[in-house]
Design a protein around this nucleic acid. Sequence first.
DNA 1: CCCTGCGATTGAACCGTTTCATGCCGCGCC
DNA 2: GGCGCGGCATGAAACGGTTCAATCGCAGGG
Lengths: 338, 338
Amino acid sequence: MTVRGASVKDVAQAAGVSLGTVSNVLNRPERVTEKTRSRVEQAMRDLGFVRNESARQLRLGKSRTLAYVMLDARNPFFTDVAAGIDDAAEAAELSLFLCNSDNRARKEAEHLEHLEQQRVQGILITPVDPNSELLETVARRGTPIVVVDRSSNVAGFCTVAVDDVLGGRLAVEHLVDQGHERIAFVGGPFGIGQVADRHDGAKAAWLAAGRREEDFVVLATDAPTVADGRAAGERLSGLPKGRRPTAAFCANDLLALGLLQQTMSTGRRIPDDLAIVGYDDIDFAAAAAVPLTSVRQPRQQLGARAAELVLDEANNPQHTHQQVVFTPELVARASTLG
Amino acid sequence: MTVRGASVKDVAQAAGVSLGTVSNVLNRPERVTEKTRSRVEQAMRDLGFVRNESARQLRLGKSRTLAYVMLDARNPFFTDVAAGIDDAAEAAELSLFLCNSDNRARKEAEHLEHLEQQRVQGILITPVDPNSELLETVARRGTPIVVVDRSSNVAGFCTVAVDDVLGGRLAVEHLVDQGHERIAFVGGPFGIGQVADRHDGAKAAWLAAGRREEDFVVLATDAPTVADGRAAGERLSGLPKGRRPTAAFCANDLLALGLLQQTMSTGRRIPDDLAIVGYDDIDFAAAAAVPLTSVRQPRQQLGARAAELVLDEANNPQHTHQQVVFTPELVARASTLG
DNA sequence: CCCTGCGATTGAACCGTTTCATGCCGCGCC
DNA sequence: GGCGCGGCATGAAACGGTTCAATCGCAGGG
């Protein structure tokens, strides 16, 4: 019934060797005689010895940990990104800790501070505010940071993002191809860079196709959630038939799913009465009642590349910051294909 | 451009005080003169001082961290549980680290080992195998552990779970009430305790209602995923009309959503042609094309209670282990209500 | 029998922080 | 003017593991 706390010293004593030898068993077993080693290992087992990572780190000066501070752990998009990071971390033999800022700046700040104090090898983050000074401060103080899925005006770190303007364009070009003459953009808040970019790309494509500005209806939402998508659906139903868009492009899939569900529940058909394009292509998108057309982002790659960058910054002295931009891709499914 | 690594000693020197004073500024500011304190704080800022948590922990012997090792970070059920834990951790002023075992025993073991070495205050875990010896070993060596959403034969820690046998019973009693004479149980693998319990409860309720054993069809799946749910739907469609169940109880919502989607895509109607009950009541369940009847588990409470227990074990010397069992609840929606 | 060389083992120093017994200083009181 | 006291400030010791120069012991050669 070991309570907690056999140290190398205790193990050394129990095994009748010096503490240096115990350390050798732990770190360079080949230098220790087979016999000695097994004696030490037995002592470790007997005492329930657990290496103290703090002491180890203190001496070594670095940890074997990577962290991802995610914006919203409940959004499948971010957990997919996390999965990509995880793969890369595993390959580099590092542990990954996930932190959830839950879209709150204070919580994010606390996580950052804690991680910095832990001397993690690097921090990946999808920040609440990509231009926050805190990020720059942390980077300047020496912890490698990579901003994921956001671009930033602030220098001092790498960013990995997807071209959201292009994504918006792809979505709308598809709808134009399908012959729609009046469409809605559903999304918000516009303070989120992503949302603004997707909107801008969408609108630009609409105008470039020679459509009229007043036929591009913007439905702003409070948050990119299923509930808000449903609410947007209700607003849409409220429009007089003549002024009602025949298609909607939603800033993410959660909104699209909400809109889809609300639309179907009122007996209207998809895509005949309303075509819908989402964004992110989360797994639930393909599995919706009417499979959802969506703009796919290379989520896992996003995470994996970000992890590579942060590790490069941590280990390669001549690392230079870079802004990686991935290209999104439209996946057409039944929700827009008559 | 601080590279990394001003220590209290450097700060002390820069501020012209002793290192003990710097430490006092950090930990007991009231003991330090206003003037001295501001001088020290200025020095900290100038040098970009970041407290070294390793050294701190080494001295203090404990960390300010809790960890949750989750079975599958991509399943909304577990992220909801994590949210509950997070609230409790925040209230106790601890950081929460999430680790994803991704259903792999080896990864789980690595995480456990790493966390143990970090001397986290406690570990919450939904384990791959609740009877694994490793859990017991870690607990015995002194790290408080609470097993979440699994029950275990192994002693040495608290568990927090939901009564899955009851959940299965609720689901089937509801279907019996709706007059179904032949139903399917969709789920697997049966090695997962949850799945087995839900099946057992379901079958018991079926027989208790006086229905015949051969009218309880079991469709075993490889994994509890959307894709497998769809596959089960195909098998179901393949049955001759006379032998085809009129309702299905799925071991979780992902399976149910897959089944629902496949069924609708073949033009059959829900619930008229097939009634469906899911399990977990994830947010996507209510948002499905036909809102899903589901057995709700108090996910956040599950997490919050688990966090309380692990903290009690960590701080209260006369803690005793307990097995908490929550009661599930049926939420009836359109997928079963004609 | 002594010396050399080599691998195995040793233990002191160190990492950065906290703690605590001790020192210092100035002030008020007798 | 001396004494005691309170409020600050000091710095050595300790936490547990890693490292590395130094030491030990043994086998083999001279």
